[in-house]
Design a protein around this nucleic acid. Structure first.
Lengths: 218, 218
DNA sequence: CGGGCATTTGAGCAAGATCAAAATGGGTGG
DNA sequence: CCACCCATTTTGATCTTGCTCAAATGCCCG
């Protein structure tokens, strides 16, 4: 029995669309099949913080399912294809398919690891370190789902997204990116990102995370 | 069948002790029975970020169990009493006790919600807002496990802990706390914290989180 | 009494924010 | 095909929040 047997439908969202609204009451669980998205929270006055980015294979909406109300929003960065499950999917996994339930929990633990990392980045890294660490992180993640092509990955984020993920202003983000470009650390153009020397970038970002072990689902 | 049936022992740690080491390879899962602790990550040069605080009823070590290597450390703030489980506890819950497995996942989702919040705080709130939000948060959490006594809760954190949780320097943390004290917002002395007007503090902290719904386990 | 940690205070500094405006660069409707 | 619009990126100038450095004070405990 694979997880896809419980699939009840698909959902498509276009780039920039709200996939799940912040604070939404009833939610379904989805698996991201294709495209990029991100989770975020905002303050009343509009300040926004991106929590983490979602790539194919990631689970969405689990918090809404378990916690009754979704405490964050989800927005698509590119056109996105979601695999939707029935409203009783989660409980039924736990009841009848312990292997899948464990996979779901694994995905939750994995995502928490990403967010733990985001706290460290935003709380203790300098602006330069933050940008470098994020770019390395995204590069590796994209690589792990097979998105590398001729040394570069698709990069659908704007500088605003980077700023909102790192707790920086757009202006400062822009200046840091320029330093990285002029230093020859990255090539970022045409919605694609290439990193010349991963080791060097890791060093500027103080970023030594090991890639996650094998991922379940899909 | 209650979760405590799977208990194989207890563990006591004294204040300041390392409960789980950062990067530790093999880990057990624990439930915190009494005392305060916190999860943290650090950078090579010693900069440390506290991810969240742990109170009685919280689960520890799940990430180590699922992800092979524990990506963060856990340290005791007060003397701490842990309920330990066997090494096969998690898989056996999923196999034989779906209700408990769901509770475990609920706890994971709940903790992620806390960390999501920490990212927002550290990334987008001002120093004053951060401190206020953290104090309100801790007050409510402590209250939810019945720690309020004569309007105040035990408060075992030093200013360094607050600083490390909020991505601030100790010096600045100190000045912010003084402003809150002189403004009559908080009373913080003798390891106890009282908040005069929760609504006012929420306002200065831009903090509107709703308390979590009912928690399982214990 | 002395050592070590935590808190407090002062002074100067700097990383990054803010404000403002110009340059780019598609994307679209006429 | 062109003109216009709007989002994004870039640049310059100035300001401020919060950091660093340094030292004093207070306090608990052996």
């Amino acid at each position: 029995m694979s997880i896809s047997a419980a699939k009840v439908g698909q959902r498509l969202c276009s780039a920039g669309a709200t996939v799940l609204a912040e604070g939404q009451a009833t939610t379904r669980v989805y698996v991201l099949l294709a495209g990029w998205a991100f989770r975020f929270k905002s303050l009343e006055d509009g300040r926004r913080q991106i929590l983490n980015f979602l790539l194919p294979g990631d689970l969405l909406g689990l918090q809404g399912e378990l916690l009754a109300r979704l405490p964050h929003g989800v927005e698509a960065l590119t056109p996105v294809n979601l695999c939707a499950f029935g409203s009783d999917a989660v409980p039924s996994f736990f009841r009848d398919h312990p292997g899948i339930a464990l996979d779901v929990t694994w995905l939750a633990a994995h995502e928490e690891r990403l967010v733990d990392d985001a706290v460290l980045t935003v709380g203790r890294r300098t602006a330069m370190e933050r940008v470098a660490a994020l770019l390395v992180h995204l590069f590796k993640r994209a690589a792990s789902v097979g998105l590398v092509e001729r040394d570069s990955i698709p990069f659908p984020l704007t500088q605003l997204h980077i700023a909102d993920a790192l707790g920086l202003s757009v202006v400062h983000t822009n200046r840091v990116l320029q330093r990285l470009r002029k230093g020859g650390f990255i090539r970022l153009e045409d919605q694609r990102l290439a990193i010349g020397d991963l080791g060097a970038m890791r060093r500027v970002g103080q970023y030594w995370e090991q890639p996650a072990p094998l991922r379940p689902l899909l």
